[in-house]
Computed example of a mutant assay.
Amino acid sequence: MKQVQAVIFDLAGTVVDFGSFAPTTIFVEAFRRGFDFDISLTEARVPMGLGKWDHIKAVGELPEVAARWLAQFNRPMTVADINIIYDTFMPLQIAKVEDHAELIPHTEQVMSQLRSQNIKIGACTGYPRAVLNALLPALKDNGFNPDYVVATDDLIVGGRPAPYMVLKNMIELGVDDVKTCVKVDDSAPGIMEGKNAGVWTVALLLSGNEAGMTLAEYQAADLATLAQARDIAQKAFSHSKPDYMIDTIADLPTVIREINEKLASGERPS
């Protein structure tokens, strides 16, 4: 009987860095340091889930950002400009990523439950390998130690929303059937990555980029505030159509049980 063989997690906003602040705040700083150009935290969040070079390019293509850039520099943003911002971003992100290495609540318990079911744990990320290598030791110390991890620049083929980081995880983890694999992510490109790989997809509504709350804000929020944040995130995921949408990783064990029941009855990911 088919059962879930592996769960592949995104990192920031999914298992670590509640609210996904490590990359977004550094994007704001990189634009400012590279060109004395201001973007908002909201603008920095829009393309979250893409590889970081592609993310910078996508921010620059936002109509409001492109208009301000044109007004400030009398020309559109160029590839050379993106390279400068990226080269500014990288050392800042490497230096500061450990400051955002606290696991999202219940991550350790969920990992333990998955391993008790002989489910393998993979991960992939929009971080480049240099940033990932700075983050992994802190994640391990804090209790998250996946069986395999792929960075966005580990493969010569495209990053998200292409399926290759998920498929590389499956190969290395020895998963022999895509429908026994689950992708968990807090961004629409990450969900599309899983959809394109043919695996089950689980979107996180409140711990990641779309809600954009700090852990303290989440814990202090009343039901109305959480409902509003949940609604915003659900709308952000509407086009990617995840199989499941849950608040945080704490809710994942229930989803795994439901997927196992569906697999037992012959169902596949949507």
Rank of each mutant, 00 (worst) to 15 (best):
D147H: 11
P269Q: 13
D36Q: 12
L92F: 06
E108H: 03
A12I: 00
V4S: 12
K179T: 15
K120S: 14
A134E: 12
S207R: 07
P269G: 13
D153G: 11
S265R: 14
L103P: 11
K52R: 05
D87I: 06
H55R: 00
Q117H: 15
K241N: 14
A95T: 08
S240N: 06
I26G: 01
L155H: 13
K168M: 14
A71M: 07
E108R: 15
V110E: 02
T125M: 06
R33F: 05
L139R: 03
D141C: 06
F35W: 14
N260M: 08
G266M: 07
D81I: 12
V110K: 04
K183S: 08
D154W: 06
T125R: 04
P91R: 11
E258G: 08
A250F: 09
G60E: 03
P269N: 13
N169K: 10
G194L: 03
Q234T: 13
R45V: 02
V4R: 11
M192D: 12
M245C: 15
T225E: 13
D247P: 04
L263W: 07
V110W: 02
A130F: 00
Q219M: 14
L263G: 10
G198Q: 12
P128D: 05
K168S: 13
K52M: 01
A221S: 15
K140H: 15
Q113I: 11
G126I: 00
I232H: 10
M170Q: 14
K57S: 02
F37Q: 12
Q228A: 10
I85P: 07
R230L: 05
R75S: 13
M245R: 09
Y164D: 14
Y244G: 12
Q5R: 14
E258P: 01
S238N: 08
L135T: 05
L206Y: 07
G198E: 10
S270W: 07
K52P: 01
G198T: 09
G49T: 01
S207W: 05
I94V: 15
V184D: 07
F144L: 03
M165V: 05
